[in-house]
Design a protein around this nucleic acid. Structure first.
Lengths: 156, 156
DNA sequence: TAGATCGTTGGTGTAAGACAAACCATTGAT
DNA sequence: ATCAATGGTTTGTCTTACACCAACGATCTA
């Protein structure tokens, strides 16, 4: 057997790196988000909701991979702040369709703007172009899996 | 003022995306890591130690952005399993130099191998090449900031 | 010698989040 | 019409990861 090309080295694992970066981002985000009355988990939920353009709660739970009872309390918090809206699905009145309100969308935008400095700092090792690439990859990775959660729950 | 090119759209924020992906990875990793006696935080610490090739504890605390007292307990856990080693710095005998042991390096390698399936699943939306790009970007982002922590603490 | 620094121990408090049980409204199948 | 299954909700318990504080010994530096 002739020796193979460069291939056989162990593939790189992103897990720990992602975790590590997430921590750095989260720590800084907390203080920036606090004045807006948000916590990191709120931001994740709002972001996912925006990207999904609305969702049933069960679908949301699957996407966030959170226990559904905890999703309820998370959404309660967001709803009392008028950031999201629960409407009954006309097709199946047991379902709640969750959507961003205008207030929620605007607050999310403000939050993201406020996070500029944080990301500039944490991603200071990357050029603007590299950051854009990173964003695209992350988006692609998470929307793929979101799509699967979607199919599973028959949602969307 | 003539209108500017494509530029002025709000830049994308990776924070929530990173957080979200980190969660997905962490949830799955826990069950894979458990049989090896590891938790996600252990993996992060081991990974950072490998990438740094050893470090003082204070420097490690800065890199991980963890409270130093919590770093102590984390290292205690790793040390009782013989995964890391604390040696006194000859230059400053107050300092502990922390390094991976052979056992630790091997376990880390085994852990990463065991995580293959997890990453394959979570990153199923990306091609092998894209995953490699992602890894490179993450590595670059986190090593840059690690370098800053290093300078701050006069370490390395 | 005095004061700062590194690591360590022990203790407290908070928040995320998993999990379980019981409930209502609604659906869909028989 | 009945009954099981489903989506959401409430409540309550338990664990874990942390941050934070105070005090200490060893060591370095001035």
């Amino acid at each position: 057997m002739t020796s193979l090309p460069v291939v056989n080295q162990p593939p790189h694992r992103c897990g720990a790196l992602v975790d590590h970066l997430a921590r750095r981002l989260r720590l800084r985000s907390e203080s920036v988000l606090a004045p807006l009355g948000l916590r990191p988990r709120h931001l994740i939920a709002l972001t996912v909701l925006r990207d999904l353009g609305g969702s049933s709660q069960q679908h949301l739970a699957k996407t966030l991979e959170m226990d559904s009872t905890n999703v309820v309390t998370l959404l309660n918090e967001l709803e009392t702040e008028n950031l999201i809206e629960r409407r009954r699905s006309p097709a199946d009145r047991r379902r709640h369709l969750v959507e961003l309100t205008d207030v929620g969308a605007k607050l999310l935008a403000r939050a993201e703007f406020a996070l500029t400095a944080v990301e500039d700092e944490v991603f200071s090792g990357l050029s603007a172009e590299q950051r854009e690439t990173l964003y695209a990859l992350l988006q692609q990775a998470s929307s793929k899996t979101a799509g699967e959660a979607c199919r599973e729950s028959g949602g969307c």
